[in-house]
Design a binder for these strands. Structure first.
Lengths: 151, 151
DNA sequence: ATCGCTGCAAACCCTTTGCAGCGCA
DNA sequence: TGCGCTGCAAAGGGTTTGCAGCGAT
């Protein structure tokens, strides 16, 4: 019931769930858990490749699928066709995504406390372990676009 | 300054902005504005194709780019690699996206009033015309997954 | 010795882009 | 008439899948 996931604990759980513990899996597991926040498949691939050059993207994707199903990571698609993976115990902030320039700004978690409670009570939706992804227009783009007409 | 966008008004604005009014553009414009909420490129393509079989996806994508830049639609990537387009005057609700089953539930807009105000004041971020996309776990999946171990 | 897992390559899906011709202004 | 726009086809980029062989249990 601890809130800190270690490679050892996760590995044991995986084994108990019937998954095999392969070197690749352990390396990918270590890579994602050591992430401060979120990682992409490519980052995991590069990270593992430095120690194990034979690794393939298929294994990264399939392993992340396992880790997600096992409950150790969540995956979030913020758009742009690049999925991000998060250790479930490290979801401490969220994202403001500008639709104009693609800029992603981080927002602290506290601002969502009230909303999260409402969502849970009214919709039964548990947003606790994930990122909020809020689309809109950032300050810079709003100012720029109000000055530049087409042509 | 009206909050209702019609094909006629939009067409005139586009022309004033220096864009050409082609039949394809007008058909796509009509298709997206007639949408109750959001449409995908494919839905627009199929809609227009029924009247103008020669239409191409390139034209749909490029037209939506124009309409976005002109301020008549917003585009949101909720993940899954499929962009959704919205008439700016019809963004009346938002989405709860379940990371496990992909189910998308709608949430009314009012629940976000306080949050939106905070985001604007503290981050200068304008989320007024867009969708919120909130990732998490829906009630059904939370209940199901607490009963089914792997294997 | 199983059979789950891996690596490779190819397939997929949506979106973007190059290019030659068309047609709006 | 000029050049912005279109359609076609091909390319792109991230992710998924089929398959044969490998290796954790």
């Amino acid at each position: 019931m601890s809130d800190t996931i270690t490679v050892e604990k996760a590995a044991q759980s995986l084994q108990e769930m019937g998954y095999r513990l392969t070197p690749q899996r352990l390396m990918i597991l270590e890579a994602v858990l050591s992430s401060e926040d979120h990682v992409t498949a490519e980052e995991l691939y590069e990270h593992v490749k430095s120690r194990y050059p034979h690794i393939s993207f298929s294994t990264v994707y399939r392993t992340m699928e396992v880790l997600r199903d096992a409950g150790f990571v969540t995956q979030t698609d913020l758009g742009g066709g690049r999925v991000q993976y998060h250790p479930v115990d490290k979801a401490k902030h969220h994202h403001l995504i500008c639709q104009s320039c693609g800029h992603v700004e981080e927002v602290s978690d506290e601002i969502f406390a009230g909303l999260r409670k409402d969502l849970h009570q009214k919709y039964g939706f548990d947003a606790l372990l994930t990122h909020f992804a809020i689309f809109g227009r950032c300050r810079v783009c709003r100012e720029r676009e109000s000055r530049q007409p087409h042509r």
